[in-house]
Every structure is written in structure tokens, then in C-alpha cells.
Design a protein around this nucleic acid. Sequence first.
DNA 1: ATAGATTGTGCAACCGTTTGCGCAAAATTT
DNA 2: AAATTTTGCGCAAACGGTTGCACAATCTAT
Lengths: 354, 354
Amino acid sequence: MAGNRVTLKDIAQKVGLSMATVSRALADHPDISGETKARVREVAQALSYIPNYRARYLRAKHSRLIALIVPEMNMFFVPSMITGINRVVQANDYSLIVFQSDNSIVQERRLVEYCTHLSADGVLLVLSSETANLQHLDILHEVDIPVVLLDKTIDTVKYTTITIDDEEAGREAASYLIARGHTRILGIFGDQRQRISTQRLKGFRRAHNEHGIPMEESQVLRVTIVNELEEQLDRAFAAHPDLTAIFTMTDELLVHTHHLLSRRGVRIPEDVSLMAISDGQAPSFLHPNVTHLRHSGIEVGERTAHILIGMIEHNSDAMMDIRIRTTLVELGSVATRTATPKRRAKPSTGKRTA
Amino acid sequence: MAGNRVTLKDIAQKVGLSMATVSRALADHPDISGETKARVREVAQALSYIPNYRARYLRAKHSRLIALIVPEMNMFFVPSMITGINRVVQANDYSLIVFQSDNSIVQERRLVEYCTHLSADGVLLVLSSETANLQHLDILHEVDIPVVLLDKTIDTVKYTTITIDDEEAGREAASYLIARGHTRILGIFGDQRQRISTQRLKGFRRAHNEHGIPMEESQVLRVTIVNELEEQLDRAFAAHPDLTAIFTMTDELLVHTHHLLSRRGVRIPEDVSLMAISDGQAPSFLHPNVTHLRHSGIEVGERTAHILIGMIEHNSDAMMDIRIRTTLVELGSVATRTATPKRRAKPSTGKRTA
DNA sequence: ATAGATTGTGCAACCGTTTGCGCAAAATTT
DNA sequence: AAATTTTGCGCAAACGGTTGCACAATCTAT
């Protein structure tokens, strides 16, 4: 049907003016008389003219495209982060183009390169778990495309980074539990290749030190595949009959832990208290609602996008390291312990390995 | 730093050939000798040449951009749908560009228009709840951009649509519960402006008819804001002391219902059985795992993207109406009732309005 | 040796816009 | 009335590639 798209030339012809004039008329350029503008607009309308941004942006040096690369689309955090990013990206007349690295460094490298082909104006990057260094970002630097790293990052002095204060959050959570009389806390952490994990764990450790609470290595679980969580949990319960509280580093770990506890018949918070770092959604539909250090994905997304756009528009290449503070949200999953806990030994689900 | 980007011209100059030859060499055109290709590639490498897709696609008629417009990024379904879409989009060398209409028809219209400006090769659209007709898609039709509607749609004979068989899923769920002796089932449904809601409800009704089970209007909850769910649930429990099962139409309704039941001290499935239409994630971390009709977001995304790409590449404008079948996943949330249920009246949470 | 086919390359137009500069006509100042 | 400024518009060159066609050089068939 289409019959090729209407262009400026078509309008120019119809209205008897040059393309240049038509272009300026449509752009509301002051050189063009009001009368002409009106006529041009009318014809453009009549012909249902659609501007071709591809051509426009070819001439201009930018593309108004911002790329986001995430390792995967899980149901936690990423969606709300995207919501936040999208909000400010759209508000500033950019478009967001989303890629998924599937936690593969090879893919990530490929995608970063692809961003240069598309001449993205900026790149937002959540590192894959395989990413151990940032050499593959050099190409962006070479062609002056600003990048900001968010959420999952590694240490760098070269790129702007936005995360929560992971260590502090870990410390605060453990501290909170300790202050409520819990002296044997199980910490559930994620993939140790990610800074997010090591830092939160570091804070968790520090809280114990600061309060002079001894902590055994078997109190920290490092979970790379959630399927292994159950077994690890069994072992931990067996090793620590005096366990009274659990801290999970993320929402994903939280919901799975919560489920396993329920299945095991553990009452929260009567038998075991539960606390997490979370963006606040999961805690609201778990029972009881779980006390957490809130870490809003939307906020992270919004701030990140703002900063990136600032870098794009002011050509700033100052490197920043931004830590967003978490806020404590007290709900019903943490009990206060008095002196000696009187916890009974609970039967395990019996799936422990022989 | 950058010093403007290296172009074909630069390479041509350096290697002493014309741009045309360089272009063809890089594209591995058969006309070019192997020797020349090698030389050109070498120089391109040395100069770290980056192709400009914007320029390339200006000449070509396509953009290899696929736009996705979703009403919002919730944590259910949308992320897995995007995962699926992304998979096939990337596998076919397209890029996915994501927009959010915030459930506003005005935004949706604006975004659709924007897609034409960007010359997207195709559009994937999940309708906003405000969308009552499809006139705003005419513009896409005019310029021959294929669209496929998915998940949340309205009736149309003009556009290709991919959904699950909503009515059948509603029927199957209710039927399953009835077959297990439940005669008073509470159905929890979403925004009635969406076809997804009306159809699922229709099936729910039909199952009752087919089994000759009477059903009162107060057995169906229509929830537009989840905050109102609690109150509605209270009312339903009060009105139907013989209530033995609940069906929720979506994951979001499921998790909130589950939470409210837990809080109320209702045991699942001993007191009340629970069943849902779900993409299977939430049921796995709720306790007990909830029986559901599975509706894989990934599958929907993949199939949709495939179809759209097919339309793009074969210029097909055949309209299709595809229904994906759900599959029953039996977990632990549904009990079988014998003759007369012996349910005790449970105290409500007491938050009912006076 | 000559005609015909093949191989490898360059010319130049084109994709749809934007924009610096030039220029005539109209408006304003002297 | 002449000199100057302002107004409104067009020319043509970008932007960075792709591609139809022509053409010279080399190769193959007679």
C-alpha cells in the first residue's frame, strides 16, 4: 500500500518552496514567515508527513538513544530499575534500548560494541557475573560514549558507578539483628564474584566484630544456584541449633528462604527472625511482612539515568562513585530476644545428603 | 579526545582505494579479491573503524529496530515476556527498544507515533488499560509497519494477536476445582476493561454452568487496585461461610491473596484451596507451592517476536489470532473435598469497614 | 591472434535532513 | 533618493554509507 514515505522534498514540491525552507518551517525557524510556516504545516499534515529521525540524526552527531545492558531480566529489582530509567529517559526525549547479556562476558562485549555501531549517546551497564575487568569498555571511551555502571559492578576508578552502600547495608542489617539480641545469625549471600556480594558480606562481618559477637564461617551461605539453597540451609540449621535469625542479601534469596522456612514449619519471627535487603515489593506479599533495608530500584534507575544524561549533555567525563543509602523498613519479621533463646530443635525436611 | 570517528573514506584514503571498494570489501562482497579484502580489513582494524548503522540504514529501507510498548513494568510476566522477546530479537540481529505507556492512551498514541519517526521495522504492543479502540494504530498501517498485539488486547479483526486462551484457562481452573469437590469458589479478577479479565471470568462462569453449580455474583471479585483486595476478601468470606477455594486470575492477585490468607491464619489447602493462572515463578516460592495453569511469559515473548519478524521479513500482512494453551501444574495448594465441607468460621482480620 | 567472458575496481547517484552562506526584495534609516 | 538594515528564502554541501553501472585488465575459448 504505502507508496514510499512522504519526504520533505514532496512537501517542497507541493507547496512550491525549497526543501530548506520546508525544513526550517517545520522546525519553527525564526527566518521563516508565519504565513509560510502555516502553509507548510498544512501541507505536511495533508500529506501525513512523517519525519525520518534516522536521516536527521545522521546529520546531527547524536542519536538520542540510550542503551541499557542487563545480565538478565529477573523479576526482582531489574523491572523497577527499568521503570525508573525509562521515566527520565523518556522525559528527556531519549529512547531506551535494552539488551541482555545472559551473564556472559562474550555477549556483554558484543553488545557494548553494538552500542557503538548504533551510536548510542550513552550506555547504562549492569555487569554480568562473568565480568572481571572493564577492558571491553575501552571502545566506548575511545569514541566518547559515556557509560555508567550500576547495581552490579566491580571496582573501578575509571567509570562512574552507582550502587547502594553495600557494605554499610550489610553491616546495618546484622547490627539491627544483634541489637535485638540475636547472636547467631545466618547470612545468605550470592555469587561471590560480584562486588555486591563480597561487600555486603564484609559489612555483615564487620557488624559482628564491632559488637564482639563471634561468628563462624559456616554461618555464611554463598549461593550461586538457588536450588542448592535448601541443602545449605539444612546444613546450617544442623550446625547451629542456636540460630535465631537469618539475613538475606537480595529479594530472590529472600523469597526462596522464606519458602523453605515455611515448608520446614519454622515460624517467623517466633522461631527465627528474618531480614533482608530488598526493594520492598517481595516483603509486602510475604507473611509476615519482612523487615528490610530498602533499596528502591526506581530511585536507582532514575538517578542513574539523570547522571548519564547529564554526562551526555555536558560532555562531562568526571568519574563519580555514588552510593545510595538504604532505609530501614521495620515490619513483622524480626523478634527481640531476651538473654537466652529457648529454641527447640526443629526437624529438617530430611532431604539432607547422606 | 575522540577526534572524529574513522569513516570509510579514511580507510579508502589510507589503503588507496575507493570508498565503494572498501565498503564492498568489508561486506565480503564476491566482486572483491581476497587480497584486497585482507588489506582493507587490516587497515580497518588498525584504525579501529566503527561502522555507522544510522547511515547504513538510511539507505536501506529498514532499521532493524523492533519496538515494544508495555503499559508498565511489573515484576510478573513482563520481565519474562521481555526475556523471550529479547532472545529471538537478538538472535535475528534486531534490537529491541522498550517504551512504557504508563497505562495511558495518550502516551501510547505518542509512542506509536514515535515508532514511525524512528522507522521501527515492527511494533510489539501490550495495550494500556485505557485503550478502548485501535484507531491510533492506523498510522502504523499507513506506513506499513507491522504490529502484533500481545497479552493485553482488545478484540480486533485487523491486527495479529497473541494471547493465551483466556476463556479456556478460566474454565479449566474452575473446572479443576469443581471436580475436586469445591462448590463455592471465589474468583479474583482484574480490571474489567481488559479483555484478559472479562474472558477469564467468562470461562470461570461457564465452568459453573457446565457442572450445574450455582454461582452468586458476590463470588467474583473485580480488583482494580490491590489495596482494595483485603476489604473485598473480608466481605466475600463473610458472605460465603461455605467458601472452600479461591482462584486468582494473575500472579499479582495471587501473591496478594496468598499474603492476606496467611495473615488471616487461613491454612492452605486445609481450610481453603488456592489456584491461579501464572507464569510459574510466584507459585514456586509461595508456601505451599500453588497449583496453577501455566502461561509462560518466555514462550509468549518468543512466539510473538518470531511472528513479528516473520511479518517483517516476508511482508506478510495476514492477520492471525493465536491462542497459546496453558498447561496444568499440580502442586500442593488444592485439597480434594468430600461431600460436605466442615469448615469452621474463621475470624476476619477485623479491618472491615464499619 | 582475436573475440568473448570474467575479474576487480571506480564513478557517481542516492537515502532524507540540516545548515552555513549568499542574495534579492522589502523595510528602515539617513 | 541613496545607503543601510532586515526579512524570507534558496543553493549546495554535508552526514556516512551502499549500489547500479561502466570500464579496463586479465583470462578463456576458438
